[in-house]
Nucleic acid binder design. Sequence first.
DNA 1: CGTGATCAATCAAGCGATTGACCGAATGCG
DNA 2: CGCATTCGGTCAATCGCTTGATTGATCACG
Lengths: 202, 202
Amino acid sequence: MTGNESGRERILDVATRLFAALGYDGTSTRMIAEAAGLNVATVAYHVGGKRDLYLAVMERAHLAERAALEGALAKITFDAEGILTLLDAYIDFCLSRPEIPALWMHRWLSDASDVAHLEEQYVRPLMEIVVDAARKVVPDGIDIEYAVWTVIWSTHGFGCGGVLSVDGQRRGREDPDAVARFRSHMRRTVALGLGLTDRLAG
Amino acid sequence: MTGNESGRERILDVATRLFAALGYDGTSTRMIAEAAGLNVATVAYHVGGKRDLYLAVMERAHLAERAALEGALAKITFDAEGILTLLDAYIDFCLSRPEIPALWMHRWLSDASDVAHLEEQYVRPLMEIVVDAARKVVPDGIDIEYAVWTVIWSTHGFGCGGVLSVDGQRRGREDPDAVARFRSHMRRTVALGLGLTDRLAG
DNA sequence: CGTGATCAATCAAGCGATTGACCGAATGCG
DNA sequence: CGCATTCGGTCAATCGCTTGATTGATCACG
């Protein structure tokens, strides 16, 4: 991620990448140690057990996501254009740091009850932020929560796996055309879905 | 799934459930054997190695999904209402057999190259079916592919993990109210997104 | 008695975790 | 100053356990 830190930070970076790519069960502490250029015992020295490491990774991911979201929220105006700018910022974040949506998708798929508190702790406050912002703009009678979830699911889906076209090509975050298509599709979907059609997106 | 078959079918049922819930790496052959009431060697006798079992599970899941989709497609008319009926059928399928979206979400998150052909083999033909159907109905200038992917991502997301509301409650496929809200949200999203607004959904 | 199905037992490899030793840079002290 | 001590960081080695896979024996039944 940031590059050449040492010790605990490098371990967290490497673990984030591996947990995102391979999932919790698919990643071994030895893989993480090797990728970080450290002995497995050194990793344990810095971050404790595998579960502690995972929790630390998830917390860091949440903090980054929250910072991105709050940073974007501080800049927008509360009108249709502002909501679409917020959407753009979220897409930017998910595409520039795809490990983070991947971590969450893995988390959602697992029903390991000992980390089930992560959603309550991390996802819900972000939902509140976004839904509150949308409420100021969106007309009554629109199901904001489900609209937000559609944005989350779609952006995570595109960011993690991309799209399989009917021509058999797989396109994703590294393909600028696909990104542009995804972005304008999402702008249109959100604008229509939230009833912001007086100011239709490009 | 179907109940009290024996041998290979029961193994595939159990494996489907476990792979969907815990992922490939999170599921051991011993878990599958125990859940099927068989010895681990008997499982191997019927289905071969773990990888073969996984491939058989994915093939069966695909056949079920394809059958559901083609069955629904055979019944619809090619107009706005038909597209929405197709959407309903897909939602029904994903909610009644949530292991199947879960299997696919796990598959998409993993980049194990030795099973990367599964998308090409299984997902693409289904995409073709749906996109072709939509093309007969949807006005020009609309990005059908991305609209379909938004439906897939959202339906899989809701079917596998449900929704976390701002009130902290987690609601999903087992909550009739949440299902109703999700369904009408998706009908509305698809109708607006595909420009079928002359026949707006309930 | 032969055939398909099942099992307990076993294998090498990998897992998460821990131990005790080692190293070099601070730190303490005579 | 010079030497001993402490301490954060690192490592090879090891522990007990689980993994995927295989073997050879056993069972039921036609």
